Amino acid sequence: MDINVMDIVGRISYHCDIMFRVIDIKEEAGRKTAVLAGEDVRLIADAPYEDLIIIDPSKRTKLAREFRSLEEQSFKLFRQDVDLLKQKQEYDATGGYSKSHNFFQMPGRVLHLDGDPVYLKKCLQLYEKVGVPVYGIHCAEKEMPDKIVHLIDYYRPDILVITGHDAYSKAKGKINDLNAYRHSRHFVQTVKEARRKIPHLDQLVIFAGACQSHFESLIHAGANFASSPSRVNIHALDPVYIVAKISFTPFMERINVWDVLRNTLTGQKGLGGIETKGVLRTGMPYKLDQLQ
């Protein structure tokens, strides 16, 4: 069976453990190699054409159902967190009185750069579902360092997400060699450019990285949160859960790193960070007739 770009495939040598989307097919010296992007994880990989098999509809449905179940569980826990945060904010905003006060909230604005347009669409849908104001930009990982300063100037975000696809290859170098990673060096350079523009860690909160990314370099470059401490794969939606938690946490409160990671699908093996302030601001009075 012929395999073409955009087909959903698995790698026979890995027992088809991950569903991939074929994004390119190259031929050199008579051998075909496919470039693959994870369908649910932010992993990019090369694979021999003959090692691939198209995932049949029944198995594809089964794997997709398993991921959707994990997503739903994670979202339910996250929703509980957000509801508790909002209840606490309402109590604080009204001084604990039973009398109703008209107040409004301004969650942190997110600028989300994603190397994968399909994942970006999924993330934007989740941001909308939880009520996070977001600007989404599809941008190839290699182009991010050159575009980030202009985008920050234009959108003026409170939170910046720099993500896409990545992968570590033992064949290309040791685990601490950035050249052994497909896109970590581009993410690192993008973070550095953003920090030259806004150095303070609490004026611009940054999440950076994808599957197997060089966590330590991203943190040292200036990211507040990054992937992947244990060089494992991260789920496509994990960045959303992290930045949404930050977006809804009041700016006077500091966020414990575990509080941010506990409701992600990947957890601390794939995600980590440093203590960071929230960015939510509350005001009053809120008068709808003045806004119309």
Results as ranks from 00 to 15, higher is better:
residue 5 V to N: 01
residue 9 V to D: 03
residue 10 G to C: 02
residue 13 S to M: 07
residue 22 V to D: 00
residue 28 E to N: 12
residue 35 V to I: 13
residue 57 P to K: 12
residue 69 S to D: 09
residue 79 R to H: 10
residue 79 R to A: 14
residue 80 Q to M: 12
residue 82 V to S: 02
residue 86 K to V: 06
residue 91 Y to R: 13
residue 93 A to D: 05
residue 98 S to C: 06
residue 99 K to A: 13
residue 99 K to N: 10
residue 101 H to Y: 11
residue 113 L to G: 01
residue 116 D to E: 13
residue 119 Y to K: 03
residue 120 L to G: 14
residue 121 K to Y: 14
residue 123 C to H: 01
residue 125 Q to G: 09
residue 127 Y to V: 02
residue 128 E to H: 07
residue 129 K to C: 06
residue 131 G to A: 02
residue 132 V to W: 03
residue 134 V to F: 03
residue 137 I to V: 15
residue 142 K to S: 14
residue 143 E to R: 12
residue 143 E to P: 03
residue 144 M to D: 05
residue 148 I to Y: 06
residue 149 V to F: 01
residue 155 Y to L: 13
residue 158 D to R: 09
residue 158 D to A: 15
residue 163 T to G: 10
residue 167 A to T: 11
residue 171 A to V: 05
residue 173 G to E: 06
residue 176 N to F: 10
residue 180 A to H: 04
residue 184 S to D: 03
residue 185 R to Y: 09
residue 191 V to Q: 03
residue 191 V to L: 07
residue 194 A to V: 02
residue 197 K to V: 08
residue 199 P to Y: 10
residue 201 L to H: 15
residue 205 V to W: 07
residue 208 A to T: 13
residue 209 G to H: 04
residue 211 C to T: 07
residue 213 S to P: 08
residue 213 S to W: 00
residue 216 E to L: 07
residue 218 L to D: 00
residue 224 N to C: 04
residue 225 F to P: 00
residue 232 V to A: 08
residue 232 V to E: 10
residue 238 D to M: 01
residue 238 D to I: 01
residue 238 D to E: 04
residue 241 Y to W: 06
residue 245 K to M: 02
residue 247 S to W: 10
residue 249 T to V: 11
residue 249 T to L: 07
residue 249 T to I: 09
residue 250 P to D: 13
residue 250 P to R: 15
residue 253 E to M: 01
residue 255 I to Q: 07
residue 266 T to K: 05
residue 266 T to H: 04
residue 269 K to L: 10
residue 270 G to H: 04
residue 271 L to Q: 01
residue 272 G to Y: 01
residue 273 G to A: 08
residue 275 E to I: 15
residue 275 E to S: 14
residue 277 K to W: 02
residue 287 K to R: 04
